[in-house]
Amino acid sequence: MDADRAAWEQRSVVRVVPPVEPRKLAKVPFVELADGRLQGVVSSGSDIERVYVSSITAGTHALSCSTNNNRPCGALHGYACKHIRMLADEAVLQYGMDRVARYLRVEVAEHGDLINSLNRLVERTPAAVVFSRFLRHLAYLEVPESTEPLAELHWFPAMGAVR
């Protein structure tokens, strides 16, 4: 076991970030585990110009949801609004239940539901931080292609599914 560990630590190419699973992006275009939160952006069902910024904080499990203009989500009081539910469902699709639960430090019973496993503290975190991370995420699609040799990428071979 120790030999395996030493071998892994002394390899240049190892998988550190587990691969994410493909999912439909139409309703929840952005989900991430970052800054100590599960956070993301949920498209409004009624207004194509509006999005909701939702998050669940790791450890405290505080819930937050507001529009990108910082207007609090009217449906969030005492229990999770549908935006937070959608965010959690899509996060589980993207990262798998284990990884999300571990990140949020929440105990989920086998076949249990993530949201029902949280206590329901509401604590609004500023939407601007998450929204600007989403805009930064979208901005990648505007970065032009490159045909430079980029030898750095030899550390990042594309890997298939975990077998």
Binding site: V20, P22, L25, Q94, S146, T147
Partner: peptide, 9 residues
Amino acid sequence: SVAAAKVDT
């Protein structure tokens, strides 16, 4: 080679 920026999804 050709490289393109993308996002994780």
